[in-house]
Amino acid sequence: DVEPGKFYKGVVTRIEKYGAFINLNEQVRGLLRPRDMISLRLENLNVGDEIIVQAIDVRPEKREIDFKYIP
């Protein structure tokens, strides 16, 4: 289970104008929005990159997770 405030290693699987989709595993995916990136820009991410993200909002009923990147 993903818990708000905890850090997780994930893989960038898709990049859109509104953010990057990060997979923690095959069943768990969330969104990293540009506003939640500190010292990292969306255009510097590539599909396949491994990054450490912090879960900031977890909505299991909608199967949605918002992430934050903190270097």
Score class of each variant (00 low, 15 high):
Asp1Gln: 14
Asp1Phe: 15
Val2Trp: 06
Val2Thr: 05
Val2Glu: 02
Val2Leu: 09
Glu3Ser: 12
Glu3Arg: 13
Glu3Ile: 15
Pro4Cys: 10
Pro4Asp: 06
Gly5Val: 03
Gly5Asp: 06
Gly5Glu: 05
Lys6Thr: 08
Lys6Trp: 08
Phe7Gln: 06
Phe7Pro: 06
Tyr8Cys: 02
Tyr8Phe: 05
Tyr8Ala: 01
Tyr8Met: 02
Lys9Trp: 14
Gly10Thr: 02
Val11Cys: 07
Val11Asp: 02
Val12Cys: 03
Val12Ile: 13
Thr13Ala: 10
Thr13Met: 09
Thr13Gln: 07
Thr13His: 06
Arg14Cys: 06
Arg14Gly: 08
Ile15Ser: 01
Ile15Trp: 03
Ile15Gln: 01
Glu16Ser: 11
Glu16Trp: 10
Glu16Pro: 02
Glu16Tyr: 12
Glu16Arg: 10
Lys17Thr: 13
Lys17Ser: 13
Lys17Asp: 11
Lys17Met: 11
Lys17Gln: 11
Tyr18Cys: 04
Tyr18Asn: 05
Tyr18Met: 06
Gly19Pro: 00
Gly19Ser: 02
Ala20His: 01
Ala20Lys: 01
Phe21Thr: 08
Ile22Ser: 00
Leu24His: 02
Asn25Trp: 12
Asn25Ala: 12
Asn25Ser: 15
Asn25Lys: 06
Glu26Lys: 15
Glu26Ser: 14
Glu26Asp: 13
Glu26Gly: 11
Glu26Ala: 15
Gln27Phe: 14
Gln27Ala: 14
Val28Tyr: 10
Arg29Ser: 12
Gly30Phe: 03
Gly30Leu: 03
Gly30Tyr: 02
Leu31Trp: 07
Leu31Met: 07
Leu31Lys: 03
Leu32Met: 07
Leu32Asp: 01
Arg33Ile: 03
Arg33Trp: 02
Arg33Ser: 04
Pro34Gly: 10
Pro34Ser: 11
Arg35Cys: 06
Asp36Cys: 06
Asp36Gly: 04
Asp36Met: 07
Met37Cys: 04
Met37Leu: 05
Ile38Cys: 09
Ser39Ala: 14
Ser39Asp: 15
Leu40Pro: 02
Leu40Glu: 05
Arg41Lys: 15
Arg41Asp: 09
Leu42Asp: 02
Leu42Gln: 03
Leu42Tyr: 05
Glu43Thr: 11
Glu43Trp: 12
Glu43Cys: 09
Asn44Thr: 10
Asn44Ile: 08
Asn44Asp: 15
Leu45Met: 10
Leu45Cys: 02
Leu45His: 00
Asn46Lys: 15
Asn46Arg: 15
Val47Arg: 06
Val47Glu: 08
Val47Ser: 04
Val47Met: 08
Val47Pro: 09
Gly48Met: 06
Gly48Thr: 04
Glu50His: 15
Glu50Ser: 15
Glu50Gln: 12
Ile51Pro: 00
Ile51Ser: 00
Ile51Ala: 00
Ile51His: 01
Ile51Cys: 05
Ile51Tyr: 02
Ile52Trp: 14
Ile52Gly: 03
Val53Asp: 00
Val53Thr: 01
Gln54Trp: 12
Gln54Pro: 00
Gln54Ser: 05
Gln54Ala: 07
Ala55Ser: 04
Ala55Val: 15
Ala55Tyr: 03
Ile56Leu: 14
Ile56Glu: 04
Ile56Val: 12
Ile56Trp: 11
Ile56Ala: 08
Asp57Asn: 15
Asp57Ser: 15
Asp57Thr: 12
Val58Phe: 08
Arg59Lys: 07
Arg59Gln: 05
Pro60Phe: 09
Pro60Ser: 11
Glu61Lys: 07
Glu61Thr: 10
Glu61Asn: 13
Glu61Val: 09
Arg63Tyr: 13
Arg63Phe: 14
Arg63Gln: 14
Glu64Ile: 11
Glu64Trp: 14
Glu64Asn: 06
Glu64Ala: 07
Ile65Cys: 04
Ile65Pro: 02
Ile65His: 04
Ile65Val: 10
Ile65Ser: 02
Asp66Ile: 12
Asp66Arg: 14
Asp66Asn: 09
Asp66Ala: 09
Asp66Gln: 08
Asp66Val: 09
Phe67Leu: 10
Phe67Glu: 01
Phe67Pro: 01
Phe67Tyr: 02
Lys68Asp: 02
Lys68Ile: 07
Lys68Ser: 13
Tyr69Ser: 03
Tyr69Glu: 07
Tyr69Trp: 08
Ile70Gln: 11
Ile70Gly: 08
Ile70Trp: 14
Ile70Pro: 04
Ile70Thr: 12
Ile70Phe: 13
Ile70His: 10
Pro71Ser: 10
Pro71His: 10
Pro71Asp: 09
